[in-house]
Design a protein around this nucleic acid. Structure first.
Lengths: 268, 268
DNA sequence: CATATGATTCCATTATTCTGAACAGCCTTA
DNA sequence: TAAGGCTGTTCAGAATAATGGAATCATATG
């Protein structure tokens, strides 16, 4: 539906950190459309403020996007709830915490709290996209999707190996996601970035649907010793947030040894 | 041109902090279009990730906007240059500094550094919109626009009085902007928020065009004593940034007593 | 269980966008 | 200095895609 708007979306997708400025001819070539069509798209997008036309006729993203981003961030109640929980975790361990969602098959970080460097908190990692098949948050978010959907996403985006540990086949991924569902959390042992490990767990809304994932990122050498502490902290934090969001159902990912440590926050 | 995209822009404009969630019928009523048209717009915008469809069929802004925002912020060289200068000013006075641009006739804050509260640096004020006829940054940005353009903007947006000191007539505004151009900076003495004062000055790119304004915000009682120090600091900071951006022209706003204090950074 | 509200689908009409070529500006080149 | 190639921009006919009213489905409400 609305092919024009869809093409406008494709145009917006062209603007990346690597190439944040596009001319009419470039866009026409990249999208395989006539120059005049590209011109119409670019100039209209500039008219509504999503793009900004430079004096030389080249286009960049417009400041209206910042305003929309502000509205988005301030209107998401669960993100603010999650932030509180993240602050506790970060304060306790001094490690970096992330909050991420799945958008069009990609992981998008929506919050980042750094452990040691307290100053440049936001706007560095927030908004960054990552492939979903690696990283702890990505695996958590995929785990609670229908498998068919996962297959579709992987077919569309591919499964590039970011490190030697990255999962690169559907079979491996299926096994991994099954494990995540059973345990209720996911590890990332140098699958995304060398020397970096993460634990992530899902955040659910009042309907029980997984809407986000929270993770703690720790350098490899420190991670091994404290593995279970990190895991329990993330599980506790995500559970707290889920409950604040009205999730009253069972907590299927708290079983066995883990359960005793977080007792008192159980089902309502 | 491309009325469909333009309508998509109108739809996006509906999503505000006050009303971040819209249904199909609401949008149809608000825009005066049939329900089916509104549905096509909303569902397509959701398809490209600018909106997100909730399970109940209501729509919110989508996370793709965060990604675009990230690209926008990381690709703006002058914003990062300005940030450095802002950090110096904030460190020196401990007061809050703002960086703003004009977008579709409104002031949009693109950077904010708080003085005393160092933690919640970004994402609070960044992206917030303000009317342009008040605030120091707004007056600076308007001052270097053609007067006809200013008139058009005021006609479109109106000149609401935010405080008793707000400029509410075109005559007052014209006089004020003339003064800004002559002096090279603007004061805001409780024109936007009671008890709050600001000084702002323009940042120019290599062509000499004013692309942004930087301001320092100080509580009224502290502002009066240090007025000229604040002003000189902002003038020096904006001049530095402008020069880093390749602005080699005259510095028309540094004259008389001020000039001696910032000697050494003059024209190239 | 009936009703009302709102989201979604359908399809013919209509207006819109698409397209290719011509125009105008800018910088490089001879 | 003038020609050449590269941009972004404009224009009018051809063709597709958007429109809008009514019907349908889903969901909350009494």
């Amino acid at each position: 539906m609305l092919g024009t708007v869809q093409k406008a979306g494709e145009v917006l997708d062209l603007f990346t950190r690597e190439k944040p400025e596009w001319g009419v001819s470039e866009v026409a070539k990249a999208l395989g459309i006539p120059k005049s069509s590209a011109h119409a798209l670019l100039s209209t997008l500039a008219l509504i403020g999503l793009l900004k036309r430079g004096p030389d006729g080249r286009y960049r993203l417009g400041w209206r996007i910042l305003t929309l981003s502000q509205v988005l961030l301030s209107s998401n109640s669960w993100r603010q709830e999650a932030r509180k929980a993240m602050e506790e975790v970060v304060a306790r361990f001094g490690e970096t915490a992330h909050l991420a969602v799945l958008e069009c098959g990609r992981v998008v970080y929506v919050e980042k709290l750094e452990g040691t460097q307290a100053v440049r908190v936001a706007n560095t990692g927030v908004g960054v996209e990552l492939p979903a098949h690696c990283s702890a948050v990505g695996k958590v978010l995929l785990a609670y999707l229908p498998w068919k959907e996962v297959v579709r996403i992987m077919a569309e985006r591919g499964m590039p190996a970011l490190t030697a540990n990255t999962i690169t086949t559907l079979d491996e991924l299926q096994t991994e996601l099954q494990g995540v569902r059973e345990k209720g959390y996911a590890y990332d042992i140098e699958e995304t970035v060398p020397e970096l490990c993460c634990v992530a767990a899902p955040i659910r809304d009042h309907t029980g649907e997984v809407i986000a994932a929270m993770s703690l990122s720790v350098p490899f050498y420190r991670f091994q010793q404290m593995k279970s502490e990190y895991r329990n902290a993330i599980l506790k934090a995500t559970q707290q947030v889920s409950e604040r969001l009205g999730y009253m159902g069972e907590i299927p990912w708290l079983k066995g040894e883990t359960q005793s440590k977080v007792k008192g926050h159980g089902k309502g």
